[in-house]
Design a binder for these strands. Sequence first.
DNA 1: GAAATTTAGGCAACCGATTGCCTGAACCTT
DNA 2: AAGGTTCAGGCAATCGGTTGCCTAAATTTC
Lengths: 353, 353
Amino acid sequence: MSDAKHDPARKTASLKMVAEFVGLSSAAVSRVLSGSPAAKSIPKATQERILAAAAELKYRPNLLARSLRRGRSHTVGVLVPELSEGYTTLVLAGLEQGLLQAGYFYNIISHHHRVELIEQAQTMMIERAVDGFVAIDTVLHQHQQLPTVTISCPDSHEWVTSIVLNHKRAAELAIDYLVGLGHRQIALIKGQSFSSDTEPRWKAIEAAAARAHVRLNPALVAQLEGDSPSHEPGYFAAQRLLASKAPFTAIFTFNDVSAIGAIRALHEAGLRVPRDVSIVGFDDVQSAAFQNPPLTTVRQPLRTMGLLAAEAIVRQIESPAEKQSSRQVMVDPELVVRESTGPPTAAKRVAKA
Amino acid sequence: MSDAKHDPARKTASLKMVAEFVGLSSAAVSRVLSGSPAAKSIPKATQERILAAAAELKYRPNLLARSLRRGRSHTVGVLVPELSEGYTTLVLAGLEQGLLQAGYFYNIISHHHRVELIEQAQTMMIERAVDGFVAIDTVLHQHQQLPTVTISCPDSHEWVTSIVLNHKRAAELAIDYLVGLGHRQIALIKGQSFSSDTEPRWKAIEAAAARAHVRLNPALVAQLEGDSPSHEPGYFAAQRLLASKAPFTAIFTFNDVSAIGAIRALHEAGLRVPRDVSIVGFDDVQSAAFQNPPLTTVRQPLRTMGLLAAEAIVRQIESPAEKQSSRQVMVDPELVVRESTGPPTAAKRVAKA
DNA sequence: GAAATTTAGGCAACCGATTGCCTGAACCTT
DNA sequence: AAGGTTCAGGCAATCGGTTGCCTAAATTTC
């Protein structure tokens, strides 16, 4: 029947305060409250007394102190290019869900693809004693000896698990679909050079085109430029395609965001989608289905990839070097056909007014 | 001249190791490396010896230990409804920039507007010893005695600074603009009831409408439903508006994402934007300018709001109860006219086919 | 009834840094 | 030459938990 009002303005009760309150050592209290196996030698009654006291004093363990002692912070550092619409957001949502479920926190730092910021971010996270890293579309140079999981990153080092998309299949889905519709003059918008998916995807597209017996016209390849995560790079890339005067009936873009930018450029040039030009995007971000026209796109299971990364990093952290199996987890894309694609209309190709 | 290879597999050097290395006490080393004022009694030569040793051993301070001792973690907890396209992302980008610049880390937890998750998140963050909270579009129930800054949240408690939009002005911008174009039958899509901007915005709209002598027809008010952060709620809300059969020539939506959903619903009903119906969105998210048609919208300076929040929380943390001025920071909206609006066309109002 | 075990919980070191206080030595002052 | 300062840096407590080892009483085993 202890008095309920103790220091109302108190920050939080510490373990020691609980210990004094029940008249036991902090060791005993710690063992009970942190569910240590050593607590089994403490009788139920005492345990309940401790629990009650903790509740009464509103005890909250100081996780900094615990982490310091245990050498495990239950925190992972997440490296992303930026917080922007589209790709990152969805992956992060999955990652967050998975991590919180497993009792982990995370720190995000976005580095805008700048090498020095990436290194600085890694350093800061190490100082903060993260238990591991998750890198999303990020080129890791300086490698720490910490568990690491990458999503869509190139050249996995050792002790890293990488979650990657089946690029081969993704390219085939899009190319075969466009070819099946009758397209032969397919323009391509490549990713920025710093984006780690750019190269593998490009190789896969070349292979898929060869397999489908379509020639890729170098004049019909535009690359996204600039590090803006917005729609502008796609917009400008499409303008360059139009300026090249080479005829095309479809564009396969690096991602949905640039597809949307490209559509805008086409519209401004007086071309209609899909009547004059078909567009296939990539990712299937949330807004893809609500574009006008709704975007046909190659879906990456972004949320799932985030979840898989969470599982992988937790597994890696918690089983020290156990069977380091599954170095690479490959996920499959899916073609989502909406209304931005259709058969090519005759030979028409309106030059830019 | 010392040997450069020390324990290559070592995690990181600790202060003590540096101290042993240079043959000094860890106290002295700490003072020098953490830039303590007490370091001034240590001669330059010694300081340099210490610095060199730290560099050689690649010493990185353990910030957990430092935080524990100093009672300041240089971390703020960020509460958001979810990581989704649109609103949150932009605010977070600004917030991140501001926080990192000031040397702070942040932990994000998204709570999907679920009360128990909000409380749980606050508790977890307190356990992790955050120095303060930033809440974005979040209703804080359980208030901690920690510095807090809210963005677009209702009912500021004490010791919280709130960053809010000038709703009055925002409503007037949109309503006056639509009325100026000749619109009289303006439909409205209200925010979800759990969204903290919904009420103030709605009041402001009512006031602006009254001021402009337009009657708001209750049949022309639809509310977003469901907690999906995607475009669907707007899509369905627009469908309900159409189903009501009440004629309207414009819609003013709660945010851009729902505006995009609404446009889709209108298109499916055979209506053109802006020929048949004008749409004004809200927020000016990244993709707004690239919609088809590009969205006329009331811009919130989201990135700036994030930056302001960062500054405010840092100030609050670092100046304990100093002049707690500026309880509320109001930012101004701006009307961005693009192509989703135009004058109403005669009396035409096509019923849903 | 003695030895072995279990029960109940305390002691104190430790995680890695920070910091108030202290001590000798050197240097200055008058 | 005695006393006062400054210099250079060490001691040890502390932040809040955790945990290996230990002890003393109670209980069980033989």
